[in-house]
Design a binder for these strands. Structure first.
Length: 432
RNA sequence: GGAGGGGUGACAGAGCGGCCGAAUGUACCGGUCUUGAAAACCGGCGUGGGCUUGCCCACCGUGGGUUCAAAUCCCACCUCCUCCGCCA
């Protein structure tokens, strides 16, 4: 949520910032007008309420001194003003709700580093990494036996069974089996262990209340992209960013506690309503996937360090797995609603011959903290914290890259040695 | 799922419908005393909002209701604890 005070003080700055994401100036003018209306209604309601309180106090005094007649007069006067106050409050509250709804619908202001542009075509590739790059090796040219899409090799090896997944839950709900399943589990364990030095491991609930979904900015905007359980007022989380961001909601932290860094491995659920029919092969895009998230509550001054650390960890994991990837700086029109700045990591998949998003690191400023009401005490007065998060990493697409990149001529898959401790000492997946 | 008991400021813990934004204690901040510290003593100490900066308004789990007036009474819900039942 944007700072309403900032909008009042420097409307032009806010307008210019949001224009970069395609938000029309008229939206902000509407909000400013509604805010002014709300405040004048509020003043009127508060003035009446103060009168009622004053009169009520005098009723008590009159009663105590035995002046029944005065008490009755004051009571009826107060009653009349009370009715007036009720009507004024209703108007004021209604205007306040409208202000809140308008404010909630607005996205965050992109940071200065965020490149201009309105669609993903305007994202900026920052750099690429591939195994051996440091020692001068050229960008990898993959062998023919690596250029087999994972849905073919996965089915052949018996580690991926999309048909059965679809039978159980519908299409785009994958079913991994045998070593394919174990690989997912290994990746989560490997990641959590790597981050354990600085990030507290959390196993949060998989579902979250509507209010919780609001705090990250997933609601009200992206309701169609999420699975809802209306009977219980719950939503399946699209990322563990949701529960993690709300862990300290409505709390005032001590500045000395910050930054608070946490990591979580959870399933993530996405309806992919806007992407229906796209990337339907294999596990390129699925309704459910496992992901390890890195998250930090921090001061504004710490945000850059936290952002850099999360990005560095995501990159280090990709490098340790020997996968080719690139960094994309998302443009103003492509960053998420709540984000000020986002860098995506895309892994190269030789079988599909495409770059696949496997990580997204974002700085949110105080946008989410304002919604979740997470503050810290500085010089005695509370301020909103900053939130930063990023995936390290999303496994279904890492699974793709591993299965394709490490496919051998004989059709087996020889995985990197770092995973060996998590795969019972083995690194080769072959047909069983 | 059933029965009972709780949810008040950073924490603990009071609070006959009006004098309660809320006693008291602890913690915290400032001061006195002290070579220094501790102790003692004195003072301060919630959050948010509005405007004419001095005042006004809101907040005692959440949402309704009763009343001239609600932390206090009524209803619903959430949540925690104890006991019973069921259960991975």
């Amino acid at each position: 949520m944007l700072d309403l005070v900032l909008l009042r003080k420097s409307p032009d700055e806010v307008k210019a910032g949001l224009a970069r994401r395609g938000v029309p100036t008229s939206d902000l003018d509407e909000l400013i007008a509604k805010d002014e209306e709300h405040r004048s209604l509020l003043q009127e309601a508060e003035r009446l309420r103060a009168t009622v309180r004053e009169l009520s106090k005098r009723v008590g005094e009159a009663r105590k001194s035995g002046d029944t007649k005065a008490a009755e007069e004051l009571t009826s006067e107060s009653r009349a003003i009370g009715d007036e106050e009720r009507r004024a409050s209703e108007k004021s509250d209604a205007a306040g709700d409208e202000v809140r709804a308008l404010l909630l619908a607005l996205p965050n202001i992109p940071s200065d580093e965020t490149p201009d542009g309105l669609s993903e075509d305007d994202n900026v590739e920052m750099r690429r990494w591939w195994p051996g790059m440091d020692t001068g090796a050229p960008f990898p040219s993959f062998e023919e036996y690596q250029k087999v899409p994972h849905w073919e090799s996965g089915e052949a090896l018996g580690i991926l069974d999309l048909e059965t997944g679809a039978k159980i839950a519908g299409s785009m709900f994958p079913l991994y089996r045998g070593d394919g399943s174990r690989l997912i589990r290994a990746l989560s364990a490997y990641a959590l262990d790597r981050h354990a030095d600085a990030y507290e491991e959390i196993r949060p609930p998989t579902f979250a209340l509507t209010e919780t979904m609001m705090s990250t900015g997933h609601l009200p905007k992206s309701a169609d992209d999420m699975y809802e359980i209306p009977r219980d007022g719950l939503w399946a989380i699209p990322t563990s960013e949701v529960p993690l961001t709300s862990m300290k909601s409505n709390q005032i932290l001590e500045e000395a506690e910050l930054p608070i860094k946490m990591t979580a491995a959870t399933a993530c659920f996405r309806r992919e309503a806007g992407a229906a029919g796209r990337d339907t092969r294999g596990v390129l895009r699925t309704h459910e996937f496992d992901k390890v998230e890195l998250f930090a509550y921090c001061t504004p001054e710490q945000a850059q360090e936290c952002f850099d650390d999360i990005l560095a960890r995501a990159e280090a994991m990709l490098q340790s797995l020997g996968l080719t990837y690139r960094l994309l700086s998302l443009c103003a029109g492509d960053i998420g609603t709540s984000s000020k700045r986002t860098i995506d990591l895309e892994v190269f998949s030789p079988g599909v011959d495409r770059w696949l998003e496997v990580s997204s690191t974002s700085w949110f400023g105080d946008f989410q903290a304002r919604r979740a009401n997470v503050r810290f005490r500085r010089n005695g007065s509370p301020k909103f914290v900053n939130t930063v998060n990023g995936s390290a990493l999303a496994w279904s697409r890492i699974w793709i890259a591993l299965v394709e990149t490490y496919r051998q001529m004989d059709g087996t898959i020889a995985l990197p040695a770092v995973l060996s401790p998590y795969l019972g000492g083995r690194t080769v997946i072959s047909k069983r």
